[in-house]
């Protein structure tokens, strides 16, 4: 079996090498990916279409916003699937937890907890900054959401899981993840009801006191906030469930 696997790996590797001789020159202006009207449009007209200086954010959240909506849904699915598989129900849920050696909860360390106490506000503030500044600099909902989610996980690491769950229970986390999707898809649906296509943010200018381009600008922030909701909460929910095999108790 090992030999078969090796042969397959070598074959795929050989295919990749075979294709490599045909690659376009790195960064060449005439390579299809650079010369296509699509790339040219992104580079020349992103600012005209959306007023957003950061091209990457515009492509991600507006031009290809439909993809990003489903990427957010993928994260939501991951959270739901893990909870659905691990959650114990009925008699199974009442059975006492098997005491493992690692379950013996040590007192939270003074130095660690105090450091974390100092760190968390800064981390969360930075998360908001990354989220809100995604239009201009690298960043956005996914990155901001991950940083925000990490702050909750840090609470669980420094103290124990119940303390973190006091602040954000798993059920509430999944609810907020759903709210994130609702924000994203809701903005899309709302722009459709205003007369455009699904996710056609420009139509929001009918209700916002701004131009069509600025409506796209603001709607992008809106969908990024939705993404951040989902990413933050799902990160934490996955951590809480995986680290305790769905029991949601004890330390690490």
């Amino acid at each position: 079996m090992k030999k078969v696997a090796l042969a397959v790996t070598l074959f795929i590797g050989a295919l990749l090498l075979y294709a490599a001789k045909d690659f376009s020159v790195w960064g060449h202006l005439q390579s299809p990916a650079s010369a296509s009207p699509v790339s040219k449009h992104f580079i020349a007209d992103t600012g005209v279409d959306t007023e957003v200086p950061n091209m990457v954010t515009a492509v991600l959240a507006d031009y290809r916003g439909f993809d990003t909506m489903f990427e957010t849904v993928v994260i939501f699915i991951a959270g739901i699937a893990i909870i659905a598989i691990l959650r114990r129900t009925g008699a199974d849920a009442d059975s006492p937890a098997i005491q493992r050696e690692s379950d013996v909860v040590a007192e939270p360390d003074l130095i660690v907890t105090n450091t974390v106490r100092l760190l968390i506000p800064v981390i969360q503030l930075f998360a908001f900054y990354v989220l809100a500044h995604g239009h201009v600099s690298p960043g956005g909902g996914f990155q901001g959401g991950v940083i925000m989610g990490a702050s909750f996980i840090l609470v669980a690491l420094a103290w124990d899981l119940p303390k973190a769950l006091d602040r954000l229970s798993v059920d509430r986390a999944i609810m907020l993840a759903g709210v994130g999707i609702l924000i994203y898809a809701g903005i899309g649906l709302f722009s459709m009801l205003l007369g455009g296509e699904f996710l056609d943010y420009a139509e929001l200018s009918h209700v916002l006191p701004v131009s069509r381009e600025m409506a796209r600008y603001h709607a992008m922030l809106g969908v990024e906030i939705g993404v951040a909701f989902t990413v933050t909460t799902v990160m934490f929910a996955i951590y809480a469930n995986l680290s305790t095999r769905g029991r949601l108790e004890g330390g690490l």
Partner: peptide
Amino acid sequence: YFFGGWNADAYPRGVGI
């Protein structure tokens, strides 16, 4: 159907989805 209103008449095809 062009999501986000990036239709092929006004923009190069493939800009949107």
